[in-house]
């Protein structure tokens, strides 16, 4: 029987619920916006770290605690975490086969990204507030 076909998926694919999650475009755009944001931010922090060469602990902490530097650091961390979560997800979806392993890898990607991201944000805020 041939009901009106509304999509290009095979019947098997439809039953297994494979196919577009309808949220890929958002990730695609997010990937590019975070990339644009990180060009100046990453270059700034590269220079910042070079300038910190040989600095002692107090100097490093006070430089990072400067409000403008702290805010730039927060922006970079947020952009980087979004960007790398999407990038790694694409890599996993391309190369990791097998339903279970794929699910584990995709979930682990979220865990790693959020854990590293929140650790960085917490540290930057702590340094910025001087506590």
């Amino acid at each position: 029987m041939s009901a009106a076909k509304k999509d290009m998926r095979t019947p098997l694919g439809r039953v297994l619920a494979h196919g577009s999650a309808k949220s890929g475009t958002g990730d695609h755009i997010r990937q590019r916006i975070t990339a644009v944001a990180m060009v100046p931010l990453a270059l700034f922090f590269t220079g910042f770290l070079v300038a910190l060469t040989g600095a002692d602990y107090e100097t490093a902490r006070s430089w990072l605690g400067n409000p403008l530097v702290s805010i730039a650091a927060l922006l970079l961390v947020v952009a980087a975490i979004m960007h790398m979560r999407i990038g790694m997800q694409i890599v996993i979806e391309d190369y990791v086969t097998g339903a279970l392993l794929r699910s584990i890898a995709l979930i682990a990607n979220f865990f790693f990204a959020y854990a590293v991201g929140l650790a960085c944000l917490y540290a930057v805020v702590k340094i910025g507030f001087g506590v």
Binding site: Y57, A60, R61, L64, A73, A80, I81, M84, G87, M88, V91, F112, V116, A119, C120, Y122, A123, V124, K126, I127
Partner: peptide, 30 residues
């Protein structure tokens, strides 16, 4: 680009270490 991207992904853990060490105190920073 992909290989380097994956390497940077792992490298963020080092950035987190540096930031947490700086937030924690001179001993952790050392």
């Amino acid at each position: 680009h992909r290989i380097v991207g994956v390497a940077l992904y792992g490298g963020t853990a080092l950035v987190a270490w540096w930031l947490i060490a700086t937030a924690s105190g001179p001993d952790a920073y050392a």
